[in-house]
């Protein structure tokens, strides 16, 4: 048969439609992401809570009495109109201290997340690109990952001394290997693709290939991982401060407030509950945000989301019913139960 090479019907429409789609896609990618983010209820909730906590951190200390004002007469007051979260054993306003603590916790968490992301990205990319560097860097990160995060952080703090900046250094050392691993494995996938080979053949420099061509492909997993580091840093900082190895008093951090609270747990529950609730909500918010970002940015994770499949099914059933009504065909929806897997 010889009829198959030139046919007016096939190729023409395909090409135009395809290229139009492509242009359309790049143009609307950002606004599409924002729309999807807003539609993703959990991520949106997480983001909103985080914004509120951030607002408390920024404006709270301006609106409340100084968190350092010691007032002997006001010691251990339960929550009241004047002190909504009560006062501590020095008569300091707990709300003010929680707000100031939010500053410290968010600052430490965010700063660590950024440092870890930058360092982890650099390490991961070079490891993915250079086999010798890979051997050395990955063995080191294996070794560092053998230390439980909190314990290594305590040890580093014990050596460096109790200071907020040292907390950030300690946490960065602890969490960088985890980020580096993720970046490395994402970059390895890209490195094997043909376009990198082509670039090498064209004589592009290594720095150029790594930063211009490979780096953009690891951004999504990097953002997701940085979000989780943010949460882990806040938890670890709180634990460190709770153990007396983190942010030094009198500067309030949620962790060292809990330490004060624990010593007075019989008399002043508010000293434990309020900072505790703030830690909990913040971590929950960041985790929701992180899970949501992973859903939105990482296509391999999307199919595993709970609830999504069911919703799709519901929507599709509804659509099917409509079509069936239109065509007035006798559609018999099969509803069989007893299927478990």
């Amino acid at each position: 048969m010889t009829h198959s090479t030139t046919t007016p019907h096939s190729a023409r429409p395909d090409i135009t439609v395809g290229s139009l789609n492509r242009i359309d896609k790049t143009r609307s990618r950002r606004s599409k992401f924002l729309r999807r983010f807003a539609a993703h209820k959990l991520a949106f909730t997480g983001g909103s809570i985080l914004v509120i906590v951030t607002l408390v951190a920024i404006f709270g200390p301006m609106l409340t009495p100084s968190p350092f004002d010691v007032a002997g007469a006001n010691r251990l007051q339960p929550p009241s109109l004047e002190h909504p979260f009560g006062t501590d054993n020095y008569g300091r306003d707990v709300l003010a201290r929680v707000a100031e603590g939010a500053r410290v916790s968010l600052f430490v968490g965010a700063f660590t997340a950024v440092c870890t992301a930058v360092l982890g990205c650099a390490v991961g990319l070079y490891a993915a690109y250079n086999r010798v560097a890979d051997m050395i860097l990955m063995r080191i990160s294996d070794g560092l990952m053998a230390f439980p995060a909190i314990l290594l952080a305590i040890a580093i703090m014990a050596a460096l001394g109790q200071q907020t900046s040292n907390v950030i250094i300690a946490l960065t050392i602890v969490f960088t290997p985890y980020v580096a691993r993720i970046v490395r494995s994402s970059a390895l996938v890209v490195r094997e693709q043909t376009f990198v080979e082509a670039l090498k053949a064209q004589g592009a420099s290594r720095t150029r290939i790594i930063w211009i061509n490979i780096a953009p492909n690891v951004v999504s997993p990097l953002i997701v991982q940085a979000t989780f580091v943010f949460a882990d840093s806040i938890i670890t900082e709180a634990a460190l401060s709770f153990l007396g190895a983190g942010v030094p008093p009198p500067a309030p951090s949620w962790g060292n407030m809990l330490l004060d609270g624990k010593n007075l747990i019989y008399t002043a529950w508010w000293m434990t509950v309020f900072p505790g609730v703030f830690i909990m909500s913040t971590i929950l918010a960041i985790n929701l945000l992180g899970d949501g970002l992973r859903d939105l940015l990482d296509p391999t994770y999307r199919s595993k989301t709970s609830g999504r499949k069911r919703k799709a099914r519901k929507a599709a059933r509804a659509a099917a019913r409509q079509t069936a009504a239109h065509q007035s065909t006798a559609s018999r929806p099969t509803t069989r139960e007893g299927e478990s897997s």
Binding site: L258, I265, T272, V273, M280, I283, L284
Partner: peptide, 22 residues
């Protein structure tokens, strides 16, 4: 599970101590 991951163990410990102990 999300709650479990979001509440650090020492904090959960304090809350449990407050509720069931105190």
């Amino acid at each position: 599970a999300l709650m479990g991951i979001s509440v650090p163990s020492f904090l959960l410990g304090l809350f449990l101590m407050l509720i069931f102990g105190v």
